[in-house]
């Protein structure tokens, strides 16, 4: 029971830290890292949930794998938009007439 308390509790603390990071930091990369930290918090909780005394529940493991893929996709899209916005700002700066 004790390892479960440690892992579940740590997962929630990590989630809360990520949540603070998303709200409090301004830079896009910091926000993205914070969102990924939140995700890791949830995954920790799921992994802890999967652990039972007699057997391991594979369903939360599958959820974590799916969650990781989704997190990769979301992060990539955000980074891409950030790059595009930088590009548009650069264009606007080099062609002030627009």
């Amino acid at each position: 029971m004790t390892p479960d308390i440690i892992y579940s509790g740590a997962g929630m603390v990590v989630f809360a830290m990520g949540l603070y990071g998303v709200i409090a930091s301004a830079h896009i990369l910091r926000k993205l890292v914070a969102i990924n930290i939140m995700g890791i918090g949830v995954f920790m909780l799921l992994i802890a949930t999967a652990h039972h005394d007699t057997l391991i529940d594979p369903v939360p493991h599958a959820m974590v794998l799916t969650g990781i893929v989704v997190a990769v996709a979301g992060t990539a899209l955000c980074l891409w938009l950030a790059v595009v916005i930088r590009g548009l700002e650069h264009d606007a700066a080099s062609h002030p007439s627009q």
Binding site: F15, L19, V22, K31, L32, I35, M38, G39, V42, V70, G74, C78
Partner: peptide
Amino acid sequence: LVGLLGSL
């Protein structure tokens, strides 16, 4: 960003 936050 809001969407990802909500999903999590």
